[in-house]
Nucleic acid binder design. Sequence first.
DNA 1: CATTGTGAATGGGTTCACAGCG
DNA 2: CGCTGTGAACCCATTCACAATG
Lengths: 235, 235
Amino acid sequence: MSVPDHPETASGTEESGRKIPPASLARLPIYLRALNAMLADSVERVSSEELAEAAGVKSAMLRKDLSYLGSFGTRGVGYDVQFVSQKISALLGLSQEWRVAIVGAGNLGRALARYSGFASRGFEVVAVFDADERIVGTRIGWLTVSNADNLEFELERTQTNMAVLAVPAAVAQQLCDRLVAAGVTSILSFAPVVLQVPPHVQVRKVDMGTELQILAYHAQRAQETESGSRARSAQ
Amino acid sequence: MSVPDHPETASGTEESGRKIPPASLARLPIYLRALNAMLADSVERVSSEELAEAAGVKSAMLRKDLSYLGSFGTRGVGYDVQFVSQKISALLGLSQEWRVAIVGAGNLGRALARYSGFASRGFEVVAVFDADERIVGTRIGWLTVSNADNLEFELERTQTNMAVLAVPAAVAQQLCDRLVAAGVTSILSFAPVVLQVPPHVQVRKVDMGTELQILAYHAQRAQETESGSRARSAQ
DNA sequence: CATTGTGAATGGGTTCACAGCG
DNA sequence: CGCTGTGAACCCATTCACAATG
């Protein structure tokens, strides 16, 4: 918490203007987590080798990733944990609170609404919607489930700027369209469908079904090669 | 156990020996979903253009992806929906039932255990574990939450061959290690940590926190450019 | 003759290896 | 001297464009 502004600027290394390659961007949250864990352990300095190890990547890759956000780090020594953490936080836009609406209060939606990991990382759940009248009005923690009919009104009222879609596939596109029309430009979707959105809207997808199927592919191949003797490797 | 063999083979194009590029593999489940949706609508043939559109990719890419699993498809005509669907299913190993254990019966674990999308795609949830004695013994649908102490025994008894980790970050690695020691080689993790596993174990990660942070980055950039006038683009 | 399947071209991402520097 | 920062090499993924073909 606290999220102070970076004190010393004009160090010659304000590289914020550059655009980060997507693959690199996707790893920054991982680095950030590792750095924050180190901070919690009062670790002050870290080498690219150590941090890369913690993040499960090669050290050269870590260094290249960090180099996109500027060149801090001291040759012969390593990186200042707190400083790099702040740099990444700032770059990701975590210095501001993001106001998240969860659309769909079924099993998954309710679980997400209660998930404490949101708040702790600068994402506040400010609204939960559902279309089922048996669910509308029920409480989830300190939130009350709103009627999806009032989606536009409530998004405006709560100043939502990010949405999580946790609705059945059949209605996902339609609700996505309403979110977009209401001005939401960042959507995290759990619905197993390909959403069509205009180019200025960012959609990220989380899909358990897809992930399990990918696992199944590898598992099947493993079976085939070592066929017969199932793993039973319990020492 | 059952594990049926895939019935029709020897169609001349048994390319199953090739190994599919990871990026391509990750898209096959998307294609499969689109194809199955078409099947449900009694669509019999589809062109690469149409299927690519439905999957949100370029048609050339779709054709290249499909070419890795062999060369079905009729020039001048397109692909047979059912045939391609079956080919992808077989390749992904969906002709066998996968027996999934969910480790962690907190909000997320319970939501996943109840998620019907599992069963409908060939993944059967056969066990749910938790360490909290207030949760152990409670029922989720037709399953009873098992004590995590009995993890190894229950995995063996239920013939589990895939696990979903839905536990707090602090205990994820430790439970992962136990899963691996018990012979589980496919793990889908929702825990926000980098898991260390031996090379023969496949881990896929789903991480809302990371996804939201990536969205925040883009949202922040959008704000900066069109600064001042917030989106208020409501129709 | 519309559409697939695929070489060739292009573009990113990752790794290597070392120059640069505290 | 050790570790960062980075050009160059390598490798994989995507796109292009067209020859092959039912």
